[in-house]
Simulated assay, not measured.
Amino acid sequence: MDSYDSFYRKNKDRVFSYLLRLTGDYHRSFDFMQESFTRYFSRYRCKNNNCALLYTIARNAALDSIRKRREETII
């Protein structure tokens, strides 16, 4: 569990700033960051921590939300 804890502490600020640039919304970016780490840790429990995969998950979480909001406004 220490490796996950250190992986989180090492990457949380960078993933958050990436999502903030992507969305422009502080609170949504924080939610997406937490969701990204949750998805990463629950689905990909591997020994080597993959930052590229984490960023992909973060981007997809943000884009899924954007798509969902667009669909709701169209209907």
Score class of each variant (00 low, 15 high):
Asp2Glu: 04
Ser3Lys: 03
Tyr4Ser: 00
Asp5Val: 02
Ser6Ala: 01
Phe7Val: 01
Phe7Asn: 00
Tyr8Leu: 04
Arg9Phe: 03
Arg9Ala: 02
Lys10Phe: 05
Asn11Thr: 00
Lys12Phe: 05
Asp13Asn: 08
Val15Pro: 01
Phe16Trp: 08
Ser17Gly: 06
Leu19Lys: 13
Leu19Tyr: 10
Leu19Gly: 06
Leu20Cys: 09
Leu20Val: 06
Leu22Val: 05
Gly24Met: 00
His27Glu: 06
His27Trp: 08
Arg28Leu: 14
Phe30Val: 11
Phe30Ile: 10
Asp31Tyr: 08
Asp31Trp: 07
Asp31Met: 09
Met33Gln: 11
Gln34Leu: 14
Gln34Phe: 13
Gln34Val: 06
Glu35Ile: 09
Glu35Leu: 10
Glu35Arg: 13
Ser36Glu: 06
Phe37Lys: 01
Thr38Ile: 11
Arg39Pro: 00
Arg39Lys: 04
Arg39Gln: 02
Tyr40Arg: 00
Phe41Asp: 01
Arg43Glu: 09
Tyr44Phe: 14
Arg45Met: 11
Asn48Val: 11
Asn50Arg: 12
Asn50Lys: 13
Ala52Lys: 15
Ala52Met: 09
Leu54Gly: 03
Leu54Arg: 04
Tyr55Arg: 13
Tyr55Leu: 15
Thr56Gln: 03
Arg59Val: 06
Arg59Met: 08
Asn60Thr: 11
Asn60Met: 02
Ala61Ile: 10
Ala61Leu: 11
Ala62Trp: 13
Leu63Val: 15
Ser65Lys: 13
Ile66Trp: 09
Ile66Asp: 07
Arg67Asp: 05
Arg67Lys: 15
Lys68Gly: 03
Arg69Cys: 03
Arg69Trp: 09
Glu71Phe: 05
Glu71Asp: 10
Thr73Leu: 12
Ile74Met: 14
Ile75Gly: 13
Ile75Leu: 08
Ile75Gln: 13
